[in-house]
């Protein structure tokens, strides 16, 4: 544990200039739920910690039928879980938030932190990926937008340059007749990291029509959260059947190369990918045809603890 200096930024501009002033060994924190654990473990050793929690206006969550969902980087996971429009239009995201750690952590942890820490198992990421989310990044020279599926470059690694800040996540309005779901498999039902997390989204061309869009995102099975492209391709344009969903789930399973670690062996993870992909696709498809479940109903299908 190395001592650090503590700074607070009140504006995005101030945070960026602090980052520039203090160089590569400065670290941004918000909820600090990841930071304090890793600092105590000696994994992160910054000289300067820049807390952006008090930057005004970055914790807003807004929804409109035209602009979709805009989540400020400082919005807490709890606020996302409880947001009425998130529950209504982005069920996979609402239940992913509900599966995240416990209430005491969700009240602190922010969506920006979950994304920027770029853990392969970050719970919010697969759900944000299937909705086609985009990151708004602000730097000294202006702002840029990066699709979330281009944001991660490795475990803990992102496209953020030093001196840049993620300020907002933009999630497009889902098409009509869309269903989505997230399932997290972990040893414990709360305060745990996913062994595997899978989000799926299915949009139909008309209530009983063919599949217009399918998105599947997998957490904790690769150096970054990934999309299961070949499984998605196998569904687009098809009249969906149980057999097709199973075949897609098998494609997702066969396409991953996970690692062995304390939470599960590679072989185990592969099997779980198949099972969770099938289950999330089934729920997404059901919701696309028959309408969404209530939040509580869907939450019951979300955390699948091993014990």
């Amino acid at each position: 544990m190395k001592r650090f200096e503590y700074l607070e930024a009140r504006t995005v501009r101030q945070a960026i200039s602090m980052l520039q002033r203090h160089g590569e060994n400065a670290c941004i924190v918000a909820g600090s739920t990841d930071f304090l654990v890793r600092w105590r473990a000696g994994v992160w050793n910054p000289d300067h910690v820049i807390n952006i929690q008090r930057v005004a206006g970055l914790s807003r969550i807004t929804y409109s039928g035209r602009n979709g969902l805009r989540i400020g980087a400082l919005a807490t996971i709890r606020a996302i879980e409880q947001h009425a429009a998130v529950r209504r239009y982005y069920p996979a995201l609402a239940v992913a938030a509900a599966s995240f750690a416990g209430v005491q952590v969700r009240n602190l942890a922010t969506v920006g932190g979950n994304i920027c820490n770029a853990s392969p198992s970050g719970d919010m990421i697969p759900a944000l990926l299937v909705f086609g989310s985009e990151c708004k990044i602000v730097g000294a020279d202006g702002e840029r937008a990066v699709a979330l599926d281009k944001f991660f470059t490795g475990p803990g690694q992102t496209v953020l340059q030093h001196g840049e800040l993620l300020t907002e996540v933009r999630v497009p309005v889902p098409a009509r007749n869309t269903g989505s779901h997230y399932i997290k498999h972990s040893p414990r039902g709360a305060m745990d990291i996913a062994t595997v997390g899978v989000a799926s989204l299915v949009s139909l061309d008309g209530r009983n029509g063919p599949c217009a869009e399918a998105c599947i995102a997998l957490g904790a099975v690769a150096p970054t959260p990934i999309r299961a492209y070949s499984a998605e391709d196998s569904l687009r344009g098809q009249a969906l059947t149980q057999d097709l969903l199973i075949a897609a789930a098998n494609l997702a399973r066969d396409g991953v190369r996970p690692i062995d670690d304390i939470r599960g062996s590679a072989e185990h993870r592969k099997e779980i990918v198949g099972v969770l992909t099938r289950r999330t696709l089934e729920q997404a498809f059901n919701a696309a045809t028959s309408g969404p479940l209530t939040f509580n109903e869907q939450r019951r299908l979300t955390v699948q603890a091993a014990f």
Partner: peptide, 27 residues
Amino acid sequence: CDEGDCGACTVLLNGKPVCSCLVLAHA
């Protein structure tokens, strides 16, 4: 645990339960 697993350190921060081991005092 001092790492946000056990909840023994839960307090209300501005009315909401949080793990006080994960909050920087100055925050």
